Each structure stands twice: as C-alpha cells, then as structure tokens.
Amino acid sequence: MEYLKLIGIVIIILGFAFKLDTIAVVVAAALATGLVSGMSIPHVLTILGKGFMDNRMVSLFFLTLPMIGVVESHGLKQAAVNGISKIKNLSAGKIFNLYLAIREITDAMGIALSGQVQFIRPLINPMAQAAASVKKTLTDKQVDLIKARAAATDNFGNFFSQNLFIASSGVLLMSSTMKSLGYTATPANIVLYSIPMAVITFLITAYYNRRFDKQFEV
C-alpha cells in the first residue's frame, strides 16, 4: 500500500505526456498523494497554501519580465546603444568589467540583480556591441562572442560573489550544514573567506576581458 503514495508521480507523468494544464496536474497530484496518505482535503489544501506562502518571494522574479519587455519595446536598448556610441575610448571589455564590479558590490549588499534577463540582454549586451562597433563593423561571429562574454561575465559575478552577504541563503545553508556535522563555520567566517575569491575572480575576468577587446581593435 505504500506504493500508492507514489501515485502523484504517475499523475504528473501522464499529465505532462498528454500536455494537460500544468498547474491543474500538479494540484491534482498533490491532492491524490495527500488523500492516499490519509490526509483530509482541508489538510492537503493547508499544506499547499503554506508552501506557496513560504516560497512566494521566488515568483516575484517573473513580475519583472513584462516590465523588461515593455521598456525594451519603447526604446531602452536603442537608448543604451546611442549613449554608448557617444562615449570615446569605451570598449566591450570595460563595460563588462564595470558590470562585474557592480554585480559583486550589489551581491555583497544582499541585492540580487538577476542579471541575465534584467541587465545582460536589454542593456549590457547591446551596450557592449555598440562600443565594439564604433571603429569597425561586427561580424555575426563577433556578435555571438560578445553575447557569450556578456552572459559569462554575469555568471562569474553571480557565482563567486553570492556568498559575500552574511544573510544570504547560501551562507546560512553552509553554516547550518557544517554546524550539524560538528564543524565551526559561522556566516561571518564564510563571508570572510569568500572575499578573496570574489577579488581574484574580478582580476582574472578583467584580464580576460582586456584580451577579449584586442580582437575588436583596428
């Protein structure tokens, strides 16, 4: 009878296979699993509601997507390109380095930029392309390289600086896990040892971004 509790997995597989409504499938799977486990419907609904309320902040990210689309359709990208094209001696690598510094500083302050959607695509990537195309016309391959470098720079900043904030979820998780295993690792210690990694990451990335610029020099 214990295997009946896995009925939720079967419902999800069948629902996705027949391309049914995702939310309806997940809720149906949760209800079925709860009922075969001996829970009442009010109890199952209470658990679902509590889970949603405890994790509702995660879904706030999606609210930014329509806003980014609206401002981009009203000329955000073109305004960024026009502004960059008027600045002399500004290269794609310098833009990436500036963004990386901002990324690490904001992470240290506990401010999550969610860079790929909100910054890289609508701002950093077109700004870098505009800076690189001041002296020469970019080829399709060079455009793709700039896109990839912009995304990589954001990933470097996010990965190596996400533990600079003492109250971040990653820092607290590592601290509690190490404590449960009998090791002393306070959040402050984790942040302290994360600072050198963030600095080294910035220096190495800045060096590679400088070398990246050389292929766009006339």
Rank of each mutant, 00 (worst) to 15 (best):
L164G: 04
K141N: 07
G93K: 09
D107I: 00
K147Q: 07
A79S: 13
P66T: 06
Q162F: 06
A79Y: 02
S91M: 04
L138D: 04
L145W: 07
A112M: 11
N89T: 01
K77M: 13
N155Y: 12
V81I: 11
K94S: 11
S168N: 06
L145T: 03
G170T: 10
N82T: 06
A128F: 08
S133I: 02
I87L: 09
A167C: 07
I102W: 09
K94R: 13
N158K: 10
L76M: 13
Q129R: 10
T137S: 10
R149A: 10
Q118E: 04
V71R: 03
F165A: 04
S114W: 04
L113G: 07
L100S: 15
A80F: 14
A112H: 15
D154P: 02
Q162G: 03
Q118F: 15
G157E: 00
L145C: 03
K141D: 09
L138F: 02
V143S: 14
R121L: 07
F159C: 08
V58Y: 05
G170Y: 12
L76Y: 12
L63G: 10
T153N: 11
R149H: 05
F159K: 07
S169G: 12
K86E: 12
A112I: 08
I111V: 11
Q162Y: 08
N155E: 00
Q142I: 00
G75A: 07
T153H: 07
N82K: 14
L123F: 10
Q129I: 07
G93Q: 07
A152C: 12
A148T: 14
D154H: 15
A131P: 04
V70Q: 10
K94L: 09
G93A: 13
A151I: 13
F156D: 10
S85R: 12
L63V: 14
N125H: 05
N125Y: 08
A148W: 03
F156W: 09
A151F: 07
E104N: 02
N125E: 13
K147F: 02
L113C: 06
N158V: 06
I68P: 08
I102F: 11
V143P: 01
A92S: 15
I111E: 01
S133Q: 08
L113S: 06
L98N: 06
A151R: 05
A132W: 06
K77H: 04
L138E: 03
I105R: 10
A80N: 12
D144N: 08
L164D: 08
S161R: 03
A108P: 03
L145I: 01
